[in-house]
């Protein structure tokens, strides 16, 4: 199967690494607006149409605000699509893409990768789905500095809520079900946010997202149910830590250290490729991802308007 990777930033690099472990996948090209030549022997294209021609499957790793346009082209050309989260940065783009999907015949999967982190899977499997939960989810890192800094611009990325906290919002929707009420606060730059979600089953989830944390990347979850408490903090479970006495430069975009044979990014892409190969439903559909993306977009609205947003009212309006 021939895959092209569209966009070779932070996440494109990780995806290439994952595909290189698959015997049945050939990365036929990489589309980049900033790079030229070749990467690990794979030709880099600056012309999107030329690159798309090579592919059975496209993997969209471009900045969020470009998703809609690229997605439309890929659907028009009948390519299977792996779409990096978030789907898009506006409700309008999300709906446009959902409509395109309705009329298409291709496999489309969204990379809500936290669902492939075994610690989050454990939490989801251990909680009692019949009982409401009270949760604290936190995700913190230093300020990510990407090539064109698009992710720091709230207009293009949705800021810390859509770009970073969406991981945990998606987990909350996945683990505790649909959300009925949202309240969000953020700083003016949208580098830091606090959210409370009320779910249909009575669960309450509170989230903290920060690009203002220089204490090392952390993902954290604390879930309480009747007579039960689950806790997880990525900084307390490092299985290996290297301490060097030389100065090293840190990557600006921090990700959790994963010491597993199959990294979550490999698992999600492997399942997507298998869904195409065996013509099975994809594990995370555009509609699935839209549910949590919409919550994140309404959280942005709540933060702007400084009021709680009821999804029931929003739907009837």
């Amino acid at each position: 199967m021939k895959v092209v990777i569209l966009g070779y930033g932070f996440i494109g690099t990780i995806h290439l690494n994952a595909y290189q472990k698959m015997n049945d996948v050939e990365v036929a090209g990489i589309y980049s607006t900033t790079k030229t030549g070749s990467i690990e022997g794979i030709k880099v294209y600056n012309d999107l149409d030329e690159c798309l021609e090579l592919a059975d499957v496209v993997d969209i790793c471009l900045p969020t605000f470009m998703h809609r346009e690229i997605f439309e082209k890929a659907v028009a050309k009948g390519k299977h699509i792996f779409l990096e989260k978030p789907i898009a940065h506006t409700e309008e783009d999300c709906r446009f893409m959902l409509e395109l999907e309705q009329r298409s015949n291709v496999k489309i999967m969204v990379g809500q990768v936290l669902r492939y982190f075994p610690e989050y899977r454990q939490l989801k499997n251990k909680i009692d789905p019949g009982k409401p939960a009270s949760s604290l989810l936190s995700r913190r890192s230093q300020l990510p500095v990407s090539g064109k800094n698009w992710s720091l611009d709230r207009k293009n990325s949705g800021g810390v809520i859509l770009d970073l906290l969406l991981h945990d919002i998606d987990f909350a929707c996945w683990a505790f079900g649909p959300v009925t009420r949202i309240f969000a606060q953020s700083d003016t730059e949208h580098y830091y946010a606090l959210l409370t979600l009320r779910h249909e089953n009575g669960s309450i989830t509170r989230l903290e997202g920060s690009w203002r944390y220089d204490g090392g990347f952390v993902q954290e979850a604390e879930i309480a149910q009747e007579n039960e408490l689950f806790t997880y903090n990525s900084q307390e479970v490092h299985p290996l830590q290297v301490h060097r006495n030389v100065l090293t430069s840190k990557d600006s975009t921090e990700i959790p250290a994963v010491l597993l044979r199959d990294a979550p990014w490999y698992l999600e892409l492997r399942e997507f490729i298998d869904a195409i190969r065996y013509d099975q439903p994809v594990p995370i559909t555009l509609q699935d991802a839209y549910e949590s993306t919409r919550v994140a977009l309404l959280a942005l609205k709540s933060a702007d308007e400084k009021r709680p947003i009821s999804l029931v009212k929003e739907l009837n309006a």
Partner: peptide, 10 residues
């Protein structure tokens, strides 16, 4: 702003 409930302690 607050959400409150009673479901943790039987």
């Amino acid at each position: 702003y607050a959400e409150a409930d009673s479901f943790l302690v039987p």
